[in-house]
Write a protein that binds this DNA or RNA. Sequence first.
DNA 1: TTTCTTTACACAATCGGTTGCAATTTATTT
DNA 2: AAATAAATTGCAACCGATTGTGTAAAGAAA
Lengths: 343, 343
Amino acid sequence: MEEHRHVTIYDIAKRLNLATSTISRALKDHHTISDKTIKKVKKTAEEMGFVPNTLAAGLRGNKSKTIGVLIPTITQPFLSSLISGIEITARKSDYSVIIMQSHDSYEEEVNMTKSLYSSRVSGVICSLAMETKDTSHFQQFSNNNIPLVFVDRVPKDFNTFRVVIDNYTAGYKATKHLIEQGCKRIAHMTAGAEFGNLYNERKRGYIDALADYGLPLREELIINLKAMTYDAGVKACNKLFGLKSPPDGLFAPGDILAVSAVQTAKKKGIKVPQDFAVIGFNNDPISEIIEPNITTITHPAEKMGKAAANIVIDTIEFHKEEEAKEITFLNTEVLVRESSKKV
Amino acid sequence: MEEHRHVTIYDIAKRLNLATSTISRALKDHHTISDKTIKKVKKTAEEMGFVPNTLAAGLRGNKSKTIGVLIPTITQPFLSSLISGIEITARKSDYSVIIMQSHDSYEEEVNMTKSLYSSRVSGVICSLAMETKDTSHFQQFSNNNIPLVFVDRVPKDFNTFRVVIDNYTAGYKATKHLIEQGCKRIAHMTAGAEFGNLYNERKRGYIDALADYGLPLREELIINLKAMTYDAGVKACNKLFGLKSPPDGLFAPGDILAVSAVQTAKKKGIKVPQDFAVIGFNNDPISEIIEPNITTITHPAEKMGKAAANIVIDTIEFHKEEEAKEITFLNTEVLVRESSKKV
DNA sequence: TTTCTTTACACAATCGGTTGCAATTTATTT
DNA sequence: AAATAAATTGCAACCGATTGTGTAAAGAAA
């Protein structure tokens, strides 16, 4: 298998006896090039198997038509859908997508921002690592006019674009739904505590809903988890069911936790939803397959990805740098299924 | 927010009164540069906030330290784990990962190979689109010495690296397991028909296992699906259960199908595994959460990703182009859980 | 016919590292 | 001390597309 050299615009220029500048312009339908020449150039390029070298173009223009995506992990339904949305939108405008997983490590995240900057990505979309408190490693993007969009897990104090759902309202709606189903003692799982934290916002919604509907807030019904895993959920449920007056409902801020709750309840002979109504969060695939299937809060992952990618691309293409760095709120809804349907 | 210019090796060179070549070499510990100079250069680079421009390096060297990953979709547990494995391994060697989703479209796949080639990716890892028959669009990589690795869904007639599991053996083992559990009428779902097709291989294993254990092959128990979805599975199951002599076991070549079967059976009052034993494929997260949890064939997604990435990187770094383009077989196992445990 | 516009294309610098080779300095040998 | 070897660093071309500026040719206006 012989080694071909890449065909360049120089090769085309030589063949047609034209300047490389003419080739370059002809290939992108520049108005100063005659139709005749354009046609000729394109035909020859095709024949010679010319494929533009985006590295060269990127170097010259100091941009790469690449969007860097930095997220905790991709093996999570919400995040893989998010990426999918980003990728679909990016491709439409001929952008590539580079992904990196921080695995929720601050240190990794810092390194990866360097790496992305080094690749001269045109824009960055990020969902923060759990560990991350300080976000100054993202400053390099803002400082260099590289659009930066945070999605879902966003910092509280960084002046840039954000694409999120209204976690407070979602938490409120979820809790309200359980109350409307007749629940009196609603448990809640949460994580972290910092103000602005996504789980904390959901918790605030939970607390306010209880208050608005005249239900007492019972600290023993709120469990703080270190990890949002199935096993952590089981453990938490066992604790809840061991209470002298156990809960009759649960707002879990993740479907995996809701699943663990439903299954733990079933094993204990506690009937779902009659004795214990459960609402999850995210609308992960599993939530509609498990039995009983799980009432959940929709979390428009793919849409959020598309929105984020559009912001990046529009900012680049239409030079919107001057505009305010706004927050985009996407809508969420209560998706009622069996696990909570008491009435 | 003022616009900074990127710091380059020229800036460092000027500051230290050295040549750019010296800076370039010092930064990568070239042996012809003295330790003193190396230290000085690195320190200054750090101070000045130098970040190398990988585009420039890539242009010069005609490679980008980037691996292109072309897969049907990323929102599928197996594939997102695959990517995760690729990304983890790539990063260790300082490679970036560009992902593209063909959505099982041949046309998209062709476009994306062009796009990847255009980005001068250092290597390509691909799982073919369902639609793809002709793979000549991958020739451009082979022709230009860009390592190409097919994973899982691989072409039968392309001389390049492949990372797969032995689908025939896996199908055989799955079927054998059901036979050992006492199943006599084992159904099977499949898709496609071409020789070498992954599902066809599993089916061959199924057929041979039946033969080896003296069970008759009944055509009515083999269902050919167009899509491997939950709904298609339900439909197929209803058909199976409607037979005058319905199956007492099912080998489903995907966990989603297995889940659909288990749930459809339960709804019909058919006891799993007593009356109907089920084995799935992939060991998707859902298989161990659903009740009864599902016996499955492990499919080492992340490992396959790591293996593929290692092949790409080793081929590049150690110039292994001359070596035989071998097939890497990863191991699979029967993971026995409740859905099949009759004995 | 001459001058002013357009139209169409060419020249050459540029982006920022990389690398072969030449040149200079320093160390070692005779 | 002279000569040779070894260690450092500099010079300049190079990768390939882009783009501001200049120029020649063709058409329009005077």
